[in-house]
């Protein structure tokens, strides 16, 4: 019967509704998470920025405020750079803080 198409259309609409509900729900869930995030950063003075959960491998990957550069980052090498596996294995990569690439002279 052609109603098979209508049945599938209903399933499709349910899927779209489900996906929309998830997007709306997640938009709202961010508010609760934001409240806890505010508490956490107020308590700690702002800790954590990068894709690492401890300081064992790469303090820079945990928070560049603690160490503005990563000693394990090398580059360029042909085709790119050799990234520190503790923070650049992630898709969330960020470059060293400006002026933190190494020792620098005292400002005049």
């Amino acid at each position: 019967m052609e109603s098979r198409g209508i049945r599938l259309l209903v399933v499709l609409l349910l899927l779209v509704a489900g996906a929309t509900a998830v997007l709306v729900r997640e938009g709202r869930a961010q508010d609760q998470r934001q409240a806890h995030a505010e508490d956490f950063h107020r308590l700690t003075g702002g800790v954590g920025f990068g894709p690492a959960l401890d300081l064992s491998g790469c303090a820079f990957g945990f928070d560049p405020r603690l160490d503005g550069t990563c000693a394990e980052d090398f580059g360029p090498v042909p085709g790119g750079a050799c990234f520190c596996p503790r923070h650049a294995g992630s898709v969330f990569f960020y470059p060293p803080l400006p002026g933190e690439e190494g020792a620098h002279a005292s400002p005049p």
């Binding site: 934001q34 505010e38 003075g45």
Partner: peptide, 19 residues
């Protein structure tokens, strides 16, 4: 990646002005 980035932004905004 977007969640982590949003958290990183929150961390920077709610932290101190200078470290």
């Amino acid at each position: 990646a977007q969640g982590l980035e949003a958290d990183a932004e929150t961390s920077a905004r709610l932290g101190a002005d200078l470290y």
